[in-house]
Amino acid sequence: MKDLGSQIAYWDGVGATKTFTHPVNPSWLAGVGASARILDYGCGYGRVMAELSDHGFSDVSGVDLSPTLIERGRRLSPDLRFAVLESPPDLMCASAGFDVVLLFAVLTCVPEEDAQRALIAELSRVLVPGGLLYVSDLVLQDDERNHSRYAAHAQQFGTPHGVFATDDGAVCRHHDITELRALLSDFDMVDEQRIDVATMNGHRSQAVQLLVRKG
C-alpha cells in the first residue's frame, strides 16, 4: 500500500539511526504462554523483540518496511527472526497465524486514516480469535511547540489535527485518544494506560498503551 510505504526513504536513511523507547509492560502478557506466536509489526531494529525474548518468549518474529532497520536488527540480534515488509500492510502469512501482535509507535508513522484502518484490518486477519493486539502510540500534546506544528501542517496540506513534519523530514501523527479507541473498536478492550516516553528525537511526550482482544 503506497500510503504506508511512502516514507521508506526516511526510515532507510536518518530514521534507521534512531533509538526507540516505548516500554513493554510485562504484566499485560502475563497470561500469554512462553510458546505463543508473537509478531512485532514495525519492529525496527528489534528492540521490543529482544526484550520479549529475554522475558522467555520463544516464538517471536518481526517485520518492518525498512531493509536498513531490518539489517540493523539482524546484526544486533542474529538469533531473532526478521523480515522486510514488501507491500505494507500486507503480511505474507496465513490468517490466524499469531496469538499476539505488537504495534509500537507505528500508527504515528502512518498519518492517513484509510491506511491506518487497512493496517488494523490486516493485523486482525492474522490474529487468532481471542488473540491480543498490544498498541503503544503517541497522543495529542498540549505544548505550544506541537500545537504550532499541527496547525502549520493542517494549513499547508489540509491534514487532520495532529499531523506534523519533524525537523529531519518524517511526517508523523499524534492522536486524540478517542481516535485510537475508534480505530480499535472491533476489538474488545482489555486495558489502557497513559505513559510518558522519549520520542525518537529526544523530546518527552505523552503516549498511551492499549491492550485489546480479537473477538
Rank of each mutant, 00 (worst) to 15 (best):
S6T: 15
Q7I: 11
I8A: 11
A9H: 15
G13H: 07
V14H: 05
V14G: 04
P23K: 09
P23Y: 06
V24R: 06
N25F: 12
W28P: 02
A30P: 00
G31D: 13
A34C: 07
S35R: 12
I38V: 05
L39P: 00
G42T: 08
Y45M: 03
L52V: 07
S53Y: 12
D54V: 09
G56N: 00
L69S: 09
L69W: 02
E71H: 07
L85S: 08
D90E: 15
L91R: 01
A96L: 07
G97T: 05
L107A: 06
E112A: 14
D114L: 07
R117C: 11
L119D: 01
E122T: 06
R125S: 00
R125T: 02
V126G: 01
Y134E: 04
Y134G: 00
V135K: 00
D137S: 09
V139P: 05
L140N: 03
L140Y: 02
Q141P: 08
E144M: 14
E144Y: 12
R145L: 13
R145G: 11
S148E: 13
S148D: 15
H153F: 11
A154Y: 01
F157D: 13
G162L: 02
V163P: 00
A165K: 11
D168P: 02
V171C: 05
H174Q: 10
T178I: 09
R181V: 12
R181P: 11
L184P: 04
V190E: 12
G202I: 01
S205C: 13
S205D: 15
A207N: 04
Q209D: 10
V212S: 08
V212G: 06
G215W: 06
